[in-house]
Design a protein around this nucleic acid. Sequence first.
DNA 1: GGCTCTCTTTGCGCGGCAGCAAACAGCAGC
DNA 2: GCTGCTGTTTGCTGCCGCGCAAAGAGAGCC
Lengths: 232, 232
Amino acid sequence: MASVDRTVIADLPLFAGLAPEQLDELLREAQSVRYPKGTTVFQQDAEAHSFFVLLHGHLRVYKLTPDGQQVVVRFVSAGEVFGVAMAIGRTTYPATAVAVVDSIALVWPSVAWPRLIAKHPTLAVNTLQTVGSRLQDAHARVVEMSTEQVERRIAHALLRLAQQSGRKVEAGVQIDFPISRQDVAEMTGTTLHTVSRVLSAWEDRGFVASGRQKITILEPHRLFVLAEGGLP
Amino acid sequence: MASVDRTVIADLPLFAGLAPEQLDELLREAQSVRYPKGTTVFQQDAEAHSFFVLLHGHLRVYKLTPDGQQVVVRFVSAGEVFGVAMAIGRTTYPATAVAVVDSIALVWPSVAWPRLIAKHPTLAVNTLQTVGSRLQDAHARVVEMSTEQVERRIAHALLRLAQQSGRKVEAGVQIDFPISRQDVAEMTGTTLHTVSRVLSAWEDRGFVASGRQKITILEPHRLFVLAEGGLP
DNA sequence: GGCTCTCTTTGCGCGGCAGCAAACAGCAGC
DNA sequence: GCTGCTGTTTGCTGCCGCGCAAAGAGAGCC
């Protein structure tokens, strides 16, 4: 297996404040693994044997309800830690992660975690920040679902996606991985039918351009106003 | 100010793995503060000057939306850490905390946090677990709000309240702080009217007994079946 | 005790959105 | 090119739960 250069991870928030030698030391324990599109990286309720840093690609993380419905927890972009079940006191993964495009991740065995944070407490501090910001995202989502109706929730979801995974193209900002109406529906607690209707309406108004598994935001500001409850 | 004995905090998860002398050292930097019923402990968007451990009482933590609606994030019970904004990389509080009964908390200045975790990395690790379990709660809530209808969400909310703040009484389990229909509505993303209707129906069926700012669960199992989607 | 304030209950009507159904359109594979 | 699959669009119907309104009931206070 090709060894990973430290410069690849040096700027990631997780490793902020660590010395080059410490990075090398951490990398020595990691494996770099390829996950072709469609592959499952880990499965909900399975033993949390590893934790990960995504080097390349995009993952879709979702929870499955007892009655078989899926809820998208988030999409993971390159540079993010994920699967840190052990760190938050779990022995199994709370969700399933699937590669939506060909992806590459660094993989550490979970059993190494206690030793790593004992040796590099900065890791725990950085992870705390990461988990904390995810907690805030989750709360923001709870607030949205409690108080906003569907159209505004969808607007918020798209803006968030654009912010973390947007790619600038001529016409606007495109979400740079394949995403279906069903995905957006599972992020916002609605149905693909409703998402389709809303996107069609926006397309007519020129806010977005969308196609099969593809969404481009043409008028981010208009969408923002709509998300905040204004009448654009 | 009366100094706090270490035995009061020795068994709290936050301080797990710390030696008695370390506890004393931490306590020396803390103040014990009383918050009479109705008092605001901290306010959303205010400078996060302190973090806290609740010694006695109950707090209601809520977020205010731009249009003035409240969403209850959680209720804090004795023994829990709260207001750890600084630890998760914020400079302001993301929500407001109000005492729903007379309460007492230990208060540390936020500026001490970096020094404290540098000296006691265990604190960061323990906080990570706490924040992690809150993240899971938040995600569970997102899943519920996405996939369940109101009655089941209310059932889940009550069961969760009973679990963390239930007091066993003759007839069943009572939520041991004053809680209104409005509160339950703001936890589940519905209206006090609907909560009232649902509770009335349950009362008729004998699942719960409720009065003014008071809810007692008589048939936890029945409620559980209902929450999980069965027909009790 | 009586007053007032806050919390709760209940009825009624409407609307947003889900659920169902069926047609349509990219895209891949042969 | 054709075929099949998966994702998308759109119409229609029904109903859950919100919004409004108004009455009822505890609890605190003087």
